[in-house]
């Protein structure tokens, strides 16, 4: 499990990246949400043994990443961080699926290994595109976009509350756990018996905070309805972005570009 401080730093970092300025940042959030979702669906629509066919899909994250001025190493690190998990979930494949699928000269590769690598590739692509989405859009804009794409208001508003108070509560929790660690005389780990009260305390304080927030809302005339500004920026650029990429994905999905390219290349040299 990640540490509290690490998680907050990560959140803040991604949040700050989203305040940057680039062609991609400036696009309406809905365009990016829809395109990313379609990208992920197309990528995972490949069968278990797809590998070569997945490579052209790298164009989407690479191009958006390049156009958005995000720090590449940070994004790569975020992707690398989840790969162990992908390996873990795919690890059973080589065990259960031992039939030879590919022969490269004398080496025979079983289906399980291919699908394991395929799972890693899928993970990198789907996670990479999701991280680029959040790092170029920001959570708040994504929430507004979800709202305008038909997700109910009640849901998105409390999602925004959640996001806002993560920053406050994690800080509180970090202080509490630090205080506990300082008094635990070097003993690692939180015992069962002290965990309940610690979380319970945090819960009670959180509850009181929710009451105070509600108080602050009521005092300013809140009566159950949220008003927020609606900015419509969905224009030509956005249509171009969504339709352009969707076409690319569909073409990549229907035509095996790598095979065509490879065949042309090997054909040319033989």
């Amino acid at each position: 499990m990640r540490s509290i401080d690490g998680a907050v730093l990560d959140l803040k970092r991604l949040d700050l990246l989203a305040t940057g300025d680039s062609i991609i940042h400036r696009l309406d959030a809905r365009a990016k949400v829809v395109t990313t979702l379609f990208f992920i669906i197309v990528v995972v629509s490949y069968k278990r043994y797809a590998l070569a066919e997945l490579t052209p899909f790298l164009f989407f994250p690479v191009i958006t990443l390049a156009l958005s001025n995000l720090p590449i190493s940070y994004i790569l690190k975020k992707i690398a961080a989840i790969l162990p998990l992908a390996i873990f979930v795919g690890l059973f494949n080589p065990l259960f699926d031992r039939e030879t699928q590919v022969l490269l000269g004398p080496i025979s590769i079983s289906g399980g290994w291919i699908s394991l690598v395929s799972i890693m590739g899928r993970s990198a692509l789907t996670v990479g595109s999701a991280i680029i989405l959040i790092a170029t859009t920001g959570f708040i804009s994504i929430c507004h976009a979800l709202n305008r794409l038909g997700i109910p208001r009640v849901f998105t508003v409390q999602l925004l509350f959640l996001y806002r108070y993560i920053f406050v509560l994690t800080e509180e929790a970090a202080c509490t756990t630090r205080a506990r660690e300082l008094r635990s005389c070097g003993k690692k780990g939180l015992g069962f018996s002290s965990f309940g009260p610690l979380i319970g305390h945090l819960l009670i304080r959180t509850w009181a905070r929710a009451e105070r927030i509600h108080m602050a809302m009521v005092v300013r005339g809140f009566s159950g309805e949220f008003h927020s500004r609606q900015i419509n920026r969905f224009g030509g650029k956005e249509y171009l972005y969504v339709i352009g990429w969707s076409l690319v994905f569909i073409i990549l999905r229907t035509e095996d570009i790598t095979a065509i390219l490879g065949a042309a290349f090997t054909g040319f040299f033989s």
């Binding site: 509350f161 509560l169 994690t170 690692k188 015992g191 069962f192 929710a210």
Partner: peptide, 30 residues
Amino acid sequence: KKDLDDRKIPLMGVLGAFIFTAQMINFTIP
């Protein structure tokens, strides 16, 4: 929404943040 308890939305959000935070505090299993 029908519930008409306008305390609920901030409460949901803040308790969500609480669960998010609480999930990062580990305890040792005896």
